[in-house]
Amino acid sequence: MASGAPENEDDTQCTLEELDDIITQPAGGMTMLPNTAYDEVYDNLLVGDESIARDLVQLRRLGVTHILNAAHGVDIHHVNTNEDMYTKLKVTFKGIEAIDHMSFNLYPFFQESADFIQKALDSGGKVLVHCIQGVSRSATLAVAFLMLKCHMTVKDALRLVRSHREVCPNTGFQQQLIKLDSELRLQRNNKIQTE
C-alpha cells in the first residue's frame, strides 16, 4: 500500500534546503502538522502521536504488534509508556529517551531502531513508531529505517514518509539524516569499486 521504490538520485550531497522543500512543498511552502493520530508511511509501518500509543483498543484493531516510542520518558517532553502497558496486547515495546531538540544526537539510535522495525516486519508484524506529535523524533527514525533497510536516499525516504504524513524533523535531526545519507552513499560507492 505505502511502499515505494527509491528513485535514481545523483551523487551530490543533500542539503537542508532540499529537505525543507520536501517537507514544505506539498503545503505551498508551509510546515503543517498532521490532522490524524497516525498514518501508514510504508507497508505495516505507522508513524503516530502520543494519543494512538495510549489507545489500546485502536492498537488492537490496527493489529499493531511492535511499538517504538521515540520519546520514552516521564517528563512533559516525553511519552510515559512501557512494556507493561502493552502486556495484554502481546506487543513488543522499545523505548528511546530522545529529546526533540536540535542538539540531541539521535544518530546512535538509527541502526538499533531500524533493526527493531525490520525484525518486526520480517515476522509479519505491524510497527507503530511514535513520539508526542508524530512529526520529528518518530519521523526521523522512520526515515532512517527506510535509508538503512530499504536502501533509499534521504530525499527519497523523506519524500515517501511526507507523502503519507505531515512531518517535520527538527534541523538537527535533518543534519543527522544527511550525515547518514553521506555515509551510506560512500559505502555503496566503495562496494561498487571493490566488485
Rank of each mutant, 00 (worst) to 15 (best):
M1N: 14
M1F: 11
G4R: 02
G4N: 05
A5F: 10
D10V: 10
L16K: 04
E17W: 02
I22G: 00
G28S: 04
G29A: 04
G29T: 00
M32A: 11
L33M: 13
T36M: 15
Y38Q: 15
D43S: 12
L45V: 07
L46E: 01
V47Y: 08
V47N: 07
S51Q: 13
I52V: 13
D55W: 00
L56A: 11
V57I: 15
Q58M: 14
Q58H: 14
L59C: 09
R61F: 08
I67L: 03
V74P: 05
D75G: 10
H78P: 04
N80S: 13
T81K: 12
N82R: 12
N82A: 09
M85Y: 11
T87N: 15
T87S: 15
K88C: 10
V91Y: 03
A98P: 02
D100L: 00
H101R: 14
M102H: 14
N105W: 01
N105V: 10
E112L: 00
I117P: 04
K119W: 06
D122T: 08
S123I: 00
S123K: 02
H130Q: 06
G134K: 07
R137M: 03
A139R: 00
L141F: 07
L141D: 04
A142N: 04
V143E: 03
L146V: 03
M147F: 12
K149G: 00
H151I: 00
A157G: 04
A157L: 06
R159E: 09
R162D: 02
H164L: 11
E166F: 11
E166S: 10
C168H: 10
T171G: 02
G172I: 04
Q176D: 02
L177F: 00
L180I: 09
L184F: 09
L186N: 13
R188K: 13
I192K: 12
T194K: 14
T194N: 11
E195I: 12
